[in-house]
């Protein structure tokens, strides 16, 4: 119990003093996970929409694969991305292993299936008559897509939150592809693991509190945005 209180106190001190090392770690976490979620959205929303609305052979198989991907073990993703980026691997020439870009790639592999899967579910739960109605009112296809996505914004924002929460709190994949290099690829989760290993429990607790705080703030902002205009 002492340790937890002491950790909380130390956390406050570190935050109030604005410890530059922790600040850097926090910033990198946000940058990496933010970029990863953004890319996942750009990939996931169109793909999810196509999966929801079109019919082609093997569609159910693809959907099952995507849904499996929603629960992909991060270490497996980390291992595959590492092997791709190894100097001896197919993308070795890019020299990306142990860089933030490698961490973004791994996190996209984790977040994209979540966003695709939840987008597909969100679009599919809309009343199919809605589409007919929108079209019969003379909407072009861009307008149709836009209206459908707007109609599904509650579950879509939930998808964003699930994706972001999943990647910012993930440790296995970023540890493997990032290497937890000080000042370069050390993020909140890997720093917490390291500080625990070094026996610096107070710092580890401080970092955990920061992580919890950030995820809360991001989700708070998204939730406010999601609930804007009242419940339907």
């Amino acid at each position: 119990m002492d340790l937890i209180l002491q950790g909380a106190k130390h956390a406050l001190e570190l935050l109030i003093q604005g410890d530059p090392e922790i600040f850097q770690v926090v910033l990198l976490s946000l940058r990496v996970s933010g970029t990863a979620v953004l890319i996942s959205l750009l990939l996931g929303i169109p793909l999810g929409t196509i999966l929801a609305l079109s019919e082609f052979p093997g569609r159910r198989l693809v959907l099952s694969l995507v849904n499996t991907g929603m629960g992909f073990p991060p270490v497996v993703v980390g291992l595959f991305v590492s092997m791709l980026l190894w100097r001896s691997g197919p993308l070795g020439g890019l020299d990306l292993l142990y860089t933030p870009a490698a961490m973004v790639i791994a996190q996209v592999a984790l977040a994209a299936p979540i966003i695709i899967g939840l987008t597909a579910a969100a679009i599919q739960q809309l009343n199919p008559k809605l589409r007919l109605q929108i079209l019969s009112l003379g909407a072009n296809r861009r307008q149709l897509m836009w209206i459908l996505l707007r109609e599904a914004r509650l579950p879509l924002l939930a998808a964003v939150m699930a994706g972001f929460g999943g990647v910012i709190s993930e440790v296995g994949a970023v540890m493997m592809v990032g290497g937890n290099v000080k000042g370069q690829t050390r993020v909140l989760t890997t720093a917490t693991v390291l500080e625990t290993r070094m026996g610096h429990f107070d710092v580890a607790i401080a970092l955990s509190l920061v992580l919890l705080g950030i995820t809360f703030l991001v989700n708070l902002a998204l939730t406010i945005f999601q609930q804007r205009g009242g419940t339907r």
């Binding site: 750009l42 929303i45 169109p46 196509i50 609305l53 079109s54 589409r131 296809r141 149709l144 897509m145």
Partner: peptide, 17 residues
């Protein structure tokens, strides 16, 4: 509708990628 959605989807996907 399916045609439209598929085409719009492809355009959006390419842009996204």
């Amino acid at each position: 509708i399916k045609q439209i959605v598929a085409r719009a989807g492809l355009v959006a996907l390419t842009t996204g990628v």
